[in-house]
Amino acid sequence: MKIENIEAIVLRIPFSVGGISAAGVWGGAGMQAADSLLVKVTTDDGLVGWGETFGFVGIPAVKAAIEQMLAPACIGRDAAQIEAIGLDLQRRFHVFGRSGAIFYGLSALDIALWDICGKAAGLPIHRLLGGARRDRLPAYASLIRYADPESIATNVRRAMEDDYRSLKLHEVDLTVIRAARDAAGPDIEITLDTNCPWTLHEAIDMAQALEPLSLRWLEEPLWPPENFSGLAALRRQCGIPIAAGENATTLMEFHHMLGAGAVDILQPSPAKMGGISALRKVFALAEAHNTQVMVHTFYDGPGLLASIHATAALGDAEAMIEWRYFGMEAQVLGDTIVPQAGMIAVPDGPGLGIDPDPEVIQRYRVS
């Protein structure tokens, strides 16, 4: 089961978000399409595995890292040696960064290799991880940033009409966040991802102002995101649970974050931080620190599936799946993965359980 070919595939799929998106960390204002990067790994005996990296404006750098550095180092290797390949790639290329393009590409390769091994064994990945504890997981609607009270209220109501009982905002303006809470009412859970905008003192002031809004968690409130001592200080003064981790990559970063007492909720991102191999270790590390894991799943393809399998097998009874609530023109994985009544099904087929739709790839591929 030797790796014969690795292909990086870029997709651009239009979406509608019930209004005009504001500028954010993913890209400029008025975004109308989501770029994603899939990785297709083929073995010499014909098995195909699929992976995914974090997308948007960072795709060209990740694609180059895969094609020019990672893929040549993998051709001819045993696809079943997932851990050995990952460690070798990290050691070989660590001088070029322990985060960003190299790690994103490595993450996609890891997910694809797990897909191959599951298919070879005839088992879903959640079985390889110990077995799913649930066959469906609650999903929360993760909204784009609108930065407008009327638009956020409209889209909060839209998500509620689609039966979501938990929502994530990506807003930083108090007026907009209050409008979302007013539209949702007291019974809908709201989480807030601010994408690292504030100093510690600013975050303390904002947390105090946000406290009456009954947020489930406050996500990544500090700049820089690796300021774990600052997060710990905020957590000690904040009445809202603190969540972070999507920008951490290595296991050591998660170790330092948990050791500092920085978070109530840990958010590893499998398409950024080493794939399923690293994700299962982070689950174990979090359990040792009595910390809840809510996997970051801002993806539409194999990265989303990796999160679902790991959460089903390793997550606690309250673990949820983030669903990118974008109104995609087409679903990379087809309609079977779309949440129903606020719940997302855990695939039970071999490997990741669902392959990307070839017609969607053909129609929306840009490189």
Rank of each mutant, 00 (worst) to 15 (best):
I3E: 14
E4I: 02
N5M: 10
N5W: 12
N5C: 10
N5L: 12
S16V: 05
G19M: 13
I20S: 10
G24F: 04
W26N: 02
G30I: 06
G30A: 03
M31I: 01
Q32P: 00
A34L: 13
A34I: 14
D45R: 12
L47C: 07
G49W: 05
T53K: 05
F54E: 02
I59T: 03
I59V: 14
P60N: 01
A61F: 07
A65P: 01
A65F: 06
I66S: 08
Q68K: 15
A73M: 09
G76P: 12
I82P: 04
L89F: 09
I102P: 00
L106Q: 05
L106R: 00
L109D: 02
A112Q: 10
C117T: 11
H126T: 01
R127A: 14
L129T: 06
R134I: 03
R136A: 01
L137Y: 05
A141C: 10
S142F: 11
S142G: 12
A147Y: 04
E150S: 08
S151D: 12
A153G: 13
R157L: 09
M160D: 06
D162Y: 00
D163P: 00
K168G: 02
A179C: 05
A179G: 01
D182C: 02
I188T: 15
I188C: 07
I188Q: 04
E189K: 08
T191Q: 11
W198K: 01
I204Q: 15
A207P: 08
P212R: 11
L213N: 12
L213W: 12
L215N: 09
W217V: 13
W217F: 15
E219K: 03
P221R: 11
P224F: 03
R236G: 14
Q237R: 15
I240G: 09
G245Q: 07
E246R: 03
L251Q: 09
M252E: 12
L258K: 07
A260I: 11
G261M: 14
L266Y: 03
L266I: 13
M273L: 10
A278H: 15
F283G: 04
A284Q: 14
Q292W: 02
T297S: 11
T297F: 00
L304Q: 04
S307E: 02
S307P: 01
I308Y: 05
G315V: 11
E318W: 03
A319K: 06
I321G: 05
E322S: 03
W323L: 06
Q340Y: 04
P347V: 09
G349C: 11
G349S: 09
G351I: 02
G351E: 07
L352G: 05
Q362V: 04
R365L: 04
